[in-house]
Structures are given as structure tokens and as C-alpha cells.
Write a protein that binds this DNA or RNA. Structure first.
Lengths: 333, 333
DNA sequence: TTGAAAGCGTTACCAA
DNA sequence: TTGGTAACGCTTTCAA
């Protein structure tokens, strides 16, 4: 900026004003300065401006993968969410700072916040980090979390109606005449836990004994789910349906069932959760519960920005819609 | 940091040294300072440190979408690449600043570079921005581009062997007895252009008249490709195979063919390019040319970092492997 | 081993 | 309308 000032024969403060569009600078002067800056491709140093302005025009997006180190950022769910967030954040004139947090990191969120890298933080998925998030949110308002809305929580979440969506999925299986419905998922992850709750609710309402159903704790990776399903089949348990807490798990289950010589949906019906793009193309196409991630991303960004402005926004829950395809064995509507 | 210094009863410079692990500070002193910082969850303000150190420990990832405004960051190819880049960049101890650039932006790259937001820049896809990239690269070394390697270019690219991969794909179609092979893609995008070159090469080598083949200029969005294919079918042209420049186009083409009552692969064989995750699950599963994005991401990051260190790295081309599935009508090997 | 002070490149306040 | 100057929060050189 000092260069530009010298070339234009004015003081740096005038250059700063001109570049910021401050109407005080005389128009001829402004034109001249802008032209020089333009020609030299000059753009103010953001680090310096950030320091002075105490804002960054950037939002951090964090993905904690505490529960499963091997889970790469290639997981279709995360990756779709990221794409939508990038779209939305860009559109609002902000930049996006992406951070993946691995297991042993202590103080990961506190550290990110204190580094002042961004004006606000979006956390995708609580993972097993509920406590850490809760703690930070007490003193740092511009924080919004994609995930399950828990009873005791005081931070702001955006998420789908996990209980209701899961319930609809399991009711669909029950109505299709399935008798022994297995849940696959990891109850330690809040969102999955809520889906499990929905599953149990649906069974209870149908006066179905929960004993007829079996839990398969599963990590979120495709391979872990595949192995878990195969092992479960090998144990010789009888079941005719699977409700998986995510599509990635469901798709792995389908693979495992096929590999074990079981037909989907004839022998075993499968329903997932998420409606990742791939789900429409699996064989057979996957019945699942759709989360509207584009809308979710929009709400997430909207809420952080409002929180940056000092507003105290409540959590938001979006409806989750059952999408009936062929893997659940029902006739398409 | 002033707070910490006051609490510890030392000067800020000592705190700075302690936090930076400078061995000069006396160990008891250091422990004390670190403990106070720990307790208060203190982390240095990055903007200030960056300003002073003239580096950011951040890499920018830019996605120019000049050629197709509607193309969201939800495109499976971009999104997979992003995931891998996030993994790789995080692993190297850097942060990732993600920027999506839309059509009218002039000087987008120059601006990003000058803003000093990151220590290096990775551009995903040249789009129609070859000239802009070329210009900036002259004066800004730590810039690496994912895309096609062009003759006249002086910047550093990483990409697959587009010509070779496309050629293998088309040869596969020829060997399967297909006679009239249509190329779908947009020749204005360097990578697609190279794939088209490979397509032509394969035809030429088989002494096939290029007149028997037809170009369908297509934007990259799924819908545009779908419409283009439907329109082409309506024109009544005869063809028995499609080589699409991307899987997204190929999958749309399959949908369009099915909607027009044509069977894949019986009536028309389809081959794509990219091997996005979804391709293994389409109906029928898509024959395509695989790009190893994980390895690509690794190389991209590796090269930028070496360039940040002042090295002048050459471009890298990775082999592209034909994956034969069912959409091309050949028997699986 | 620690303290003092300069400086990174901006922006904003106060004077002129 | 413009110029000078302080301040943003840190790191590092130089002195002590």
C-alpha cells in the first residue's frame, strides 16, 4: 500500500480510504488511486486488515472425526455437506476455512476459536465431542453445530428430525410385513442415537417386542459396517430387515448381504438414512430418509451470521422425508 | 498474550518465546506460562502472527467455475477432490482456505494471491481460465493446477493422462464392435479437450472415418447433459456408443437413453471418465476411466509445498486406468 | 535468561 | 478533503 501511495503521490491513509470506497476522497484522486492499484493487481493484505478490523470475513468449518480416525473426508455425507456449505458461504461473501480434527486433539475447538481465524464456526457432526462443544459455546456465541438436538444441550444445532425420520422408516418396514428388524449404527454418536430412538419408538408403538431386534454397533466407515454385517450373518441370527443409521452403512450392508447369498429386498429389506446421491443408483436403489443438506447448509450459515451479529438464535430442526425405493421391498408409489 | 504475561509476571516476549517452544526460556518459567495459557485456553491470534511472520500455514484451494455458473460445488468430482485435499493438507499441518470463483470475477487469481491469505494456491480445473492462470504463474511460483497439461503452458499442473485414458476407453468400444461412437463433452475445457483428442486418436488409428462420429458440446451439469442427449436422440441420428468426457455426463446420458427407450448397453454402450464413487452403483454399472484422486491430491499438495520452499517443480501426469463394468456391453473380465 | 522496542500492513481517529 | 499517528497482537533483534 505504501507503494501505491508513493506512486499516486498521496498518503497511505488516503489510499486506504480510496480502496475502501470511502466517499471522502475526491473523485479524481480516487480514480487515479484505483487505476494504479488495478494496474499493479494490488489487493490489501488480509492478515493486516484482519488484525486491525478484528474480523476476517471467514467462517471456519470443522469436522471432528473423533469416533473414527479412518473416516476420511471422502465420506459422501460430509462431502456433500461441504459442497453445499462452500456454495452458501461463498454466496454470502465470506471465505471458508476448512479444518478436519483428528482423535487425540484436545482443546481443538477452543484453539480454533482463539486463533481468531474466522468470525464464526460451523461444526459438522457432534461426533463424540458433545462436552467440548458445550463448553466452548458458553463463551463463544457464533458457533453452530450440524447434528442431533440433545436434551441437555445449550449450543445451537441445525439438523433433521432424526427421531421422526427413523420412525417413519421403521414403520414403513413394519407395514411391509417385516418381523425382525435389525438396527445398525453407533449409539455413541448423537445423531445415530436419535435414529435408534426413533427405531425403538416405532417398534414399541407396534407393540413389538424389542427382544426380537438386535443392535449392531458400527463405526461409520463402509468397511467396518460391511464386516459387522457379515459377522452378524455368520452368527446365524434370523432377521428380515435392516434399518441402518446412515446410507453408507446401508450400502455396505447390502453388499454384505449379497456376498452372503441373501437377496435384497426379498430375504432382507434395507433402509438407510441421509439420501446421499449414490443411494438412487445402488442395486437395488436404496429406500432411505432424506436430509435436505442444501437447506441445512443455508440455515447453518444463516444462523452463524446472525450470531456474529449478536443475535441469540434457537436451534432448528428440519423435516426428514422417507424416500421409498426398492431396497425395502415395497412397491414404488 | 498481554494477559498471560501479566498473570505470569513476565514480559510478553517471554510468553511468546515460551509458547513457541524457544529453549531459551527457563524451564520452570516455561511450565508456569504454558500452564496459564492452557488453563485459559489461550492460543495466539493467527492474524497477528501471520502478519509478523509473513506466512499463514494455510493453502488456498480455488475452484473456478467460469464455464458453468450453475455447476455447484456438489459436483461429485470436485467434491471428492476436495475431500482428498482436505485430508492431505490437514495431515501436513496446514489449514485449507476454500474459494469458489464465479463467472464475472476478473482478476480472481491475482486478487487471491495478493491478499496473502495463504502460502500457496491450488487451482482445481483450468475451466476457461488458462490465460489468467498463465499470467499469474509468471510472478507467483507456489501455484499448482489440477487439470490438463497443455503445450504452451508454463505453469505446473497435475493431472491424469487424459489422452491415453480416453484412447483406451474408445479402443475398448471399438473392440467391442461399436461402429458409431459419439463424444459428449465441452471442448473448451482443457481436460475435456484432451479426452476428445484421445477419442479422435483412437478412431484414427482404427482407420475410422471421423465423419461417423458426432460432437455434442455439453456443459458439465447433469441436466445440461441430459437435455443434450435427449435432443440428440430426437434428431434421429444413428449411433451405438457414447464416450462421455466425465462420469456426470455419462450418467446423465444413461438416464436420457433409458428415458428414450434405448437399452444400455444393448442399443448404446456408454463409457465415462473419472470413476466417481457413484459410477460403480449405477444401473448398469458404468465403464469408465479412473483417475486416482487421492494420489492426485497428495501430489498437488506435495508440489505446492515444495514450490513454497523455492523449488521449481515440473508438471506431473498420472496414468488413467480403464475400468470395465457393464455399461460398455463387454463381458467383465 | 529476560526486557525493551521495532515492525509486519492495515485502518481509524484527530488535526489541519 | 487530506496527512499524521496510534493501534491491532504478535515475533524477533538487540541490550542488559
Amino acid at each position: 500500500m505504501a507503494d501505491i501511495a508513493r506512486l499516486a503521490g498521496v498518503h497511505v491513509s488516503t489510499v486506504s480510504r480510496a480502496l475502501a470506497g470511502n466517499p471522502l476522497v475526491e473523485s479524481t484522486q480516487r480514480e487515479k488511486i484505483l487505476k494504479i492499484a488495478q494496474d499493479r493487481g494490488y489487493v490489501p493484505n488480509t492478515a493486516a486488515a484482519n488484525l486491525r478490523l478484528r474480523r476476517t470475513q471467514t467462517l471456519s468449518v470443522v469436522i471432528p472425526l473423533h469416533h473414527e480416525a479412518g473416516q476420511a473426508l471422502t465420506d459422501p455425507f460430509f462431502v456433500s455437506m461441504l459442497g453445499h456449505l462452500a456454495d452458501e458461504i461463498t454466496q454470502r461473501g465470506y471465505g471458508m476455512y476448512l479444518k478436519k480434527v483428528l482423535p487425540p486433539a484436545t482443546n481443538w475447538l477452543q484453539g480454533l476459536v482463539q486463533s481468531h481465524r474466522a468470525d464464526g464456526v460451523i461444526v459438522i457432526g457432534q461426533s463424540t465431542e458433545h462436552a467440548a462443544i458445550e463448553a466452548v459455546s458458553k463463551t463463544y456465541p457464533p458457533l453452530v453445530v450440524w447434528g442431533g438436538h440433545l436434551q441437555q444441550q445449550s449450543y445451537c444445532t441445525v439438523g433433521s428430525d432424526n427421531v421422526g425420520g427413523a420412525r417413519a422408516a421403521v414403520e414403513h418396514l413394519i407395514q411391509s410385513g417385516r418381523k425382525r428388524i435389525v438396527f445398525m449404527g453407533d449409539s455413541n454418536i448423537p445423531e445415530m442415537r436419535l435414529r435408534q430412538d426413533g427405531y425403538r419408538l416405532a417398534l414399541a408403538q407396534a407393540s413389538r417386542s424389542a427382544t426380537a431386534d438386535v443392535q449392531i454397533p458400527s463405526h461409520m466407515t463402509a468397511d467396518a459396517a460391511y464386516e459387522a454385517m457379515r459377522a452378524y450373518i455368520r452368527e446365524g441370527e434370523k432377521f428380515d430387515a435392516v434399518f441402518a443409521a446412515t446410507d453408507v452403512i446401508a450400502i455396505s450392508a447390502i453388499r454384505a448381504l449379497a456376498a452372503s447369498g441373501l437377496s435384497v429386498p426379498k430375504d432382507v429389506a434395507v433402509v438407510g438414512f441421509d439420501d446421499i446421491p449414490m443411494s438412487a443408483y445402488t442395486n437395488p436403489p436404496l429406500t432411505t430418509v432424506r436430509q435436505d443438506l442444501q437447506r441445512g447448509a443455508k440455515i447453518l450459515v444463516d444462523l452463524v451470521l446472525r450470531r456474529i451479529d449478536g443475535e441469540d438464535t434457537p436451534s432448528a430442526t428440519m423435516p426428514a422425508e422417507l424416500i421409498v425405493r426398492e431396497s425395502s421391498g415395497a412397491r414404488r408409489k
